[in-house]
Computed example of a mutant assay.
Amino acid sequence: MTGHLLFIVLIYSFHQIEALPPPKLTVTRSVITEIDSVTLTCEPPSSVPVSQCHFYTLIASKGNLKDFPCVKTLTGIELLDIVNTLAVVKVNCFYEVQTERSEYSDISTITIQSSPPPKLTVDPPVITETDSVTLRCEPPSSVSVSQCHFYTVSGGTARVFPCLKTLTGSELLQMASLTSPAEVKVRCCYTVKHQSPYSVISYITVQRPNGDKDRITDLTTSTPSKKSPAGRDEADSTAAMPHNTVSSTTSASQTTVNPASDTSRRVMVVIMTACGVAVGVVLLGIGLVWNQQREEKCASKGAKVSITDDWKSLVDYDETYSIVNYECKNE
Rank of each mutant, 00 (worst) to 15 (best):
G211E: 02
D81V: 02
K66S: 15
Q16R: 13
M272Q: 14
S313A: 14
R159H: 12
P118H: 00
S222N: 08
T166V: 08
P23S: 12
T250L: 09
C93L: 06
K213Y: 14
V133Y: 04
E138G: 00
R232Q: 09
N291C: 09
H15G: 09
V192S: 03
G285I: 08
K119H: 02
K185A: 05
K329T: 15
G155S: 13
V184L: 03
G63C: 08
F7T: 13
V315I: 11
R136N: 15
L288A: 12
K304T: 09
K62S: 03
H194L: 10
I8E: 15
F161E: 15
T157G: 08
R266C: 09
L6A: 14
T245W: 09
D316G: 11
L135G: 08
A60D: 15
S222T: 09
T217E: 13
V305A: 07
R266T: 15
I11M: 15
C137S: 07
N291P: 01
I82T: 04
V122C: 02
E295C: 02
S199C: 01
S261T: 14
Q254C: 13
K297N: 11
T255S: 11
V71H: 03
N258I: 03
T73Y: 03
D123H: 08
P45C: 06
V97Y: 14
C188F: 05
T26Q: 04
V133F: 07
K90M: 12
P139T: 05
F55W: 08
Q52R: 07
D123M: 06
L172N: 02
E78K: 15
Y321R: 03
L6R: 08
M241H: 00
R29N: 14
